[in-house]
């Protein structure tokens, strides 16, 4: 058996502050096989984005962060890599769509120049003209109506959803083997969202890309993900195949979450507490979805 594209085992994270350490992750384990689409869903503030940042090696630089456990990418323990090799992976074999477009798009460069930089990471000698042609096609793929104008724009001249699509296009451009998508569709209308999801799905199938898909939109998760991990306050509480988990949610937190999804059929805003002792109940693992053995 080949190693999973991503394997996270017993990941812990704390932040040191003047009032002592605040623990954020309490031992997270998850894995993504080649070509698999895996969703991470759960509470706001539960540790989804920090997990993604650790995989990319971005949180390791923060002095206050205390990280424990193991993260392997294609069978290689990331902590054994030099910062230079890690940097070489980012944007090529591993790419990320960040939750906040403004934190990854630079406001002082036009989109076209930033796209050129992205393409250079995989193809250092690419010409300006080739880069522009590729970028234009990539933006058209994510339904940007006037790609030439978008490339000539600064990010503040584009709408929230256009910036998000620019980031999606950039993240897909170099055909990574691991794509981390942190809330990629929050600023997209449902028709454009469907289009970008099907683009991602095509890419995954063509290149056997593995996807870590972080989202609060459970309808989208249900349609997109093969497997789902549910996280609550830094702990995985339930995991299983999408179809099983949505049909038969077993952990009290997952049940509450699914019951709280507003319905297009109406019925008002659901009355369910966002805190409860029962949400700390032990983890539930659906049949056949255990983490791979230590040997990986």
């Amino acid at each position: 058996m080949t190693a999973p594209t991503l394997l996270i085992r017993d990941l812990t994270l704390g932040f040191r502050g003047w009032a002592g350490q605040v623990d954020v992750l309490h031992g997270i384990s998850l894995h993504i096989m080649k070509g698999e689409r895996v969703a991470l869903v759960g509470e706001s503030g539960s540790g989804k984005s920090v997990t993604a940042r650790i995989v990319l090696g971005l949180l390791q630089q923060l002095k206050t962060a205390r990280i424990g456990g193991r993260v392997s990418f294609e069978g290689q323990d990331l902590s054994t890599l030099t910062e230079r090799r890690r940097h070489a992976l980012r944007g090529t074999r591993m790419s990320m769509i960040f939750q906040d477009p403004t934190s990854s798009l630079n406001p002082v460069y036009r989109i076209g120049a930033q796209f050129h930089e992205v393409l250079k990471r995989a193809e250092p000698g690419i010409s300006q003209a080739d880069a522009r042609r590729k970028a234009q096609a990539a933006l058209a793929d994510v339904a940007i109506p006037d790609p030439a104008r978008a490339l000539d724009s600064y990010s503040f001249q584009l709408s929230g959803g256009m910036n998000q699509r620019v980031m999606i296009a950039m993240a897909l451009a170099n055909e990574p083997s691991l794509l981390i998508a942190d809330e990629p569709g929050t600023a997209l209308d449902v028709t454009v969202q469907a289009q970008t999801l099907s683009l991602m799905r095509d890419l995954v199938e063509k290149h056997r890309t593995s996807v870590l898909f972080i989202s609060h939109n459970l309808g989208v998760v249900r349609e997109f993900a093969d497997r789902v991990y549910v996280i609550y306050k830094g702990r995985i509480v339930e995991q299983g195949r999408s179809a099983d988990l949505f049909a038969d949610p077993r952990h009290p937190y997952t049940r509450a979450l699914l019951a709280a999804v507003p319905r297009i059929t109406g019925g008002g805003i659901p009355e369910i507490d966002d805190v409860s002792d029962s949400y700390f109940a032990p983890m539930v693992v659906h049949e056949g979805c255990e983490e791979p053995g230590e040997a990986g």
Binding site: S44, Q99, H216, L257, A260
Partner: peptide, 10 residues
Amino acid sequence: SALDVLVQAR
């Protein structure tokens, strides 16, 4: 857009 549905309901 960045809230889970339980916090969103609140």
